[in-house]
Structure formats: C-alpha cells, structure tokens
Design a protein around this nucleic acid. Structure first.
Lengths: 349, 349
DNA sequence: CTGAAAGCGCTAACAC
DNA sequence: GTGTTAGCGCTTTCAG
C-alpha cells in the first residue's frame, strides 16, 4: 500500500506538503503542487481512510438507516437511498447502510465509534424509539419523515397535507362533489409514520372548504381488498365520481376493477394517485398524480445534514444543533389522462 | 469521547488488557474481564473505528455496489441489499453503499483507501467494466450475477437455466404442448445481465426434450406493450395454453388483459411467473412461480466474501483468491392457483 | 511557501 | 495472565 510518506519522498517534499496539496488547506506553489500530483498519479496513491478518520476525527461517512421491513414503498425507499448515496458522493462522503435490524442501538454504535459523521434516518415513525438517541447525539442527524414530536430535530418530508389539499382542489375544480380516498392498510394509520393521516386531513380540510364530500377507506393493496374497498365505496356513496389513491399496491387492481365494472376512467370516474412518477405513468391509463419526490428528499437530507455538520464544526453552542427545522417539500400535481370533469348526473332530480 | 486508555485507567489495568478483553484474542482472568467490562459499560465506551482500522488494517466494512438505474427489479435489489446488511451485521461488519454513479473507479477508491475490506457487486452485466479491476484487486469480491467470463471470480446467482427447465417441466406435466414466454424488454436481452437468456435457454432445452413448443416474445412491461405481446402470441400460436412470465411489470397487466379477453386462469390458460414471492402472491390469482431468492443471494454473497477474506488472512498464495467459484442457487417452484391441466382442444380433430 | 514533529486511539508483538 | 511499547498513516500545530 502506497503511503503519504512514500509520495512525499518520491516528490522530494515533506509529508505535510503532500497532505496540504490534498486538502488544499494552505497555499502551495504551482511547481510543488504539480510535482506532488504527478507522484500521486504515478504511485497510484489513495489516502488511507482509517488514518484520516483517526487524525482528523471525521470519517466522511454518513450513516443511512433504512427500515427493515421491505413491504411498503420499496421503490421510494430505494430511490431515496440512491439519491442520498449520489449526493453524498458529490460532496466527498460515503454512505453506510444500516437497517432497522439493530434497533436504536445502531445509532449509538455508529456515532459512538466515530464510524459516521452524521446520520439520516428513513421511515421515521410517529413515536420513533430512535429519537431520544438522536436528540442526545453529538453528531448531526436528519429525519426523513415527520414524528409526532419533532422538537430539536431536523426533518425532511413531502408536505402531505398540502398534497391532500391539492388533490381535493383539482377534483373540485373539475366539478366533483363526491370523492373517495383509498388509503393505506389500516395498520399503517394506527402504528406508523403519519403521512397517511396528513394527506387525509389535507383532503378533508380543503374538500370541506369547497363543498366536496369525502369518504375514506383503508385498503391493504391486495386485489381482494381493493375490490372490497371499491364495492363499499360505491355502495355507500353511489354518487362518487372521483377517487384519490394513496396506496401504490392498490392502483393496478383498482384500474383493473373499474374497467371490469364498466366504469371508464376518466369519463365515469376520475382517479388521482399519490405515488412515484414511474408508477403513475406505467398504468393502463396515465394517472394524474402527485409525485413523491424521493430523489429530492434524499438530496435535501444530505444537504441539511452536511450543513449541520459544518455548523457544528464552527462550534455551535448547542452541540449538533438543537434547533427544530422542518422542511416540507411542496407537492406537485401533474395532470394526466385519469382525471376529467365530473359526469353530469343521469337520472337525478 | 471515551478512549481505551480511559477505560484501562478506570479499570486499573493496561490498555492492551482492555484491547484483549474486547477482541478475545488472549485469555483473561474472569476477575479482570469483569472489571474491564464494567468500566466499559459505566463509561459508555465505544472503540474508535478509525483507530481500529488503522492499527489492524481491517475496516470491518463491506462495500456493496448497487446499480444506479432504478427501473428494474427494484424490490429484489432492495431485498438483497437488506439481506447483505443484516448478514454482515451478524458477522460484525457494516455495509458501505456505493452506486454505479462513480463507475468502476469506485472499486479502486474503496479498495485503495482501505475503506472496505471486501466488495459485493450487484447487477453484474455480461461484459462488466468493473471486472478487470475486481480481478486485480487485493481485496476479496463477490458478484451477484453471472458475467460472460467469470474466470477468477466468485459469483452468486439464481440458476436461471434450471429455473427455465423447471417451468417447462411443470407445464409439460400438466399436458401443455404450446407454451409462450413473456420476457424482459428487448434491450435487456441485448445489453445486460444474461439472466433472461439463461432462463429462456433452460425453457427451450427442457421443452424440446418433452415435446413442447416454445414461443418467446420480449415485453417492456407497460400495459400497451403487454397487450401487444399477448395479441401476437395468440395470433401466431392460437393453441398456446400456458405462459411463462419473466417480467415483474408485465404480470399485473397480463392478468388483467387475460381476464378482459375472457381467458380464465388457469382453466383456459396457465400462468407461471419468475418473480419474488411477494409479487406472486399479491395478484388477483395467486401465481405458480419460481421465486427469486433475493435474501439468500445477499446472505450467500456475504458468507462467500467473508470466507475469502478469512482465507486471504491466512496468506493464500494468490492474493484475494484467483479461483473461479460459481454458486448457482437451485430454483424452487411453488405451485399456486395459476397453473392447471391443459384444456382439451374444443373443436380440434 | 515549506518542514519537522507531535499525536489521533488502537493493535499486536515482545516482555515477564 | 498481564503490562510495555512501537507503530498504523494521516492531520495539524509550531517553526521558519
């Protein structure tokens, strides 16, 4: 293994000079710099990560904690992870992949060992057991998701309430007066990340303002469940002319079922989805949708966590930064082929 | 930050004793060990990763290189990644997440800097630009996938040829004589990982032996494309009574289309899929399928790479291990509700 | 603009 | 069974 000392010798300079050429932390004459850079190239030198981490007390590694369960929103998770890795690399950092496996303990371990300089936690739940550790941690952290109590934390998430409002508004403008929401599995609402509730709340709020009635039903995403959910919706509210779906798995079955029932989209029924773009565009009907900006969430998380790291280096009084910061990304609705004007009532008074 | 020296002082022993308590590399009296462990707990000591890596020349990190493109087999990728992370942790290692982003250069960087002790490369292509670097690398590596020339490499993959044979066999036993294969997008076959060809070859081989005719058509997975593919199949081979699908995206649309066309599954047409279990079970009809054993692939990759690392520590003559090792996991077919006996010809002679 | 040298925290001989 | 000590390769004062 080529060491910095060898490079120094080869270039006829001191070790510190090589180090400074690498870090750019002090001015080096062009002549010297070029000699050093040449030696680095010729010898195929790569600075040793461990030594660097030890001497500088920074690993240039960001830990990314993924959910263990792999049953929901997988593509979104994956996209976020890739965005995090890509953005981190652009800024000279690597990403350490942690799973929920170890539980909150992982936070302690990674931070305590100096393995990572910072953390990004995905799939944050309303009452997340990792939060207390994060608050006490001397290293900066950013959450993707919004816990019940975000105080002293930095969070990035899609603005789901605004998402819900946007959907309601779009449908109201098209003249729909009875709207159904096909949501996530019931369990999701009880136990989890709260995004589902936030969307729903947004829908209800704006719908109320605009005189639109809302019926919400959870759905576990299986074909049967989706069939049951749809049946109940049309049973209880026959006038329903639009559906908002926030459940990736239910989208395919739903379109298929509507077709079977002879309900044309969007002529008889409008459909609007909250899902990744890819899912929206790959259906039998291109779906009007609000995208889940996975890439941007990943990118912002890295930027925020690195900003905090920078601030912490500057000796912030409160350690890793005790300020509460919630960044909700604005939703973007894309109108495609699945929404249209509400049908005029056929045989109504 | 608590250091080993502080623990030693607190416990009234030397630094090396603490180190040995941690590593278990020499026998320590119970009394001493307990004192040390107590001090470790009381002080909340975590060994510094950088210092460890520097002194021991091992980082206890495995690099996992993911594909950048996020368009295919995402859940499988994710499952593998999680299995890798989980298995690695069980064995005291962490996982560094690399994307294709950086290209082959990432291999050099990670290995050269000693950041990772070993690498696992996912989504290996037939002619992968990373392979030469891997062959020269002083650190062990394992590929998930099978390149055109696997010499001197260690590879883990599903035995796709056997998978194809298994599908053909199952359908033949049920009396099917005309079978169609709905494959991946044409681009996949030309440019990529070869798994699609291997499956197809297996199907053809066994089908030929059993007197079954095979028609293969690529499909990009969109609804339209699936419709077109199906239409062509039934047009060219009206007697087709079974379909093998190796294209996650096409499954939903296909079932939906068959239903629309009044073809009952499995009475009129049998369907067998090569896909993750989750996908197979979540359709309107539970699909007979060959699972893609993502978890096992991830787990085996870690085990193999760590075995190689161990061997390398024992001073193998050939560096990281120049032996070719190909581990093809045996496919497992699960019969569910989508395959049944071939229908008896209605108006045929 | 460049060098010399003191660690960073840990491991692993080498002693006893 | 335990202690002493010499690095591991790099960063960063402190000197010039």
């Amino acid at each position: 293994m080529v060491t910095l000392a060898e490079v120094a010798r080869h270039a006829g300079v001191s070790a510190s000079t090589v180090s400074y050429v690498l870090s750019g932390k002090r001015t080096i004459s062009t002549r010297t710099r070029e000699r050093v850079e040449k030696s680095i190239r010729e010898l195929g030198y790569h600075p040793n990560a461990g030594a660097r981490a030890l001497a500088s007390n920074k690993s240039n590694i960001i830990a990314l904690m993924m959910p263990l369960r792999t049953d929901m929103y997988v593509p979104v998770m994956m996209e976020i992870a890739i965005a995090v890795a890509t953005t981190a690399r652009e800024r000279g950092h690597d990403v350490l992949l942690l799973t929920g496996q170890e539980g909150p303990e992982a936070v302690r371990r990674v931070v305590g060992s100096g393995l990572a300089d910072a953390m990004i936690l995905m799939d944050v739940e309303l009452e997340d057991t990792r939060l207390s550790l994060v608050r006490e941690s001397p290293r900066p952290a950013v959450l993707i998701g919004l816990p019940a109590d975000p105080s002293e934390l930095t969070c990035v998430d899609l603005d789901f309430a605004a998402t819900g409002r946007l959907c309601a508004e779009h449908l109201a403008e098209l003249g729909h007066r009875d709207v159904a929401v096909v949501g996530e599995a019931a369990a999701v609402y009880e136990r989890r990340t709260g995004f589902a509730e936030r969307t729903l709340q947004g829908v209800r709020e704006r719908a109320a303002e605009l005189g639109v009635r809302v019926l919400h039903r959870p759905c576990d995403g299986s074909y049967e469940s989706t069939a049951g959910t749809l049946a109940r919706i049309f049973d209880e509210r026959p006038a329903t002319s639009a559906v908002i779906v926030q459940n990736e798995a239910a989208i395919g079955p739903m379109l298929s079922l509507l077709r079977q029932q002879g309900r044309a989209v969007p002529e008889d029924i409008s459909v609007i989805a909250v899902c990744p773009e890819q899912v929206a565009t790959q259906q039998s009907v291109a779906l009007t949708s609000v995208a889940i900006p996975a890439q941007e969430m990943g990118r912002r998380a890295v930027e925020l966590v690195m900003a905090k790291a920078g601030a912490a280096d500057g000796r912030a009084p409160t350690g890793a930064g005790a300020e509460t910061l919630i960044e909700l990304l604005p939703p973007q609705l894309t109108v495609r082929a699945s929404t249209g004007p509400a049908p005029t009532p056929t045989g109504a008074p």
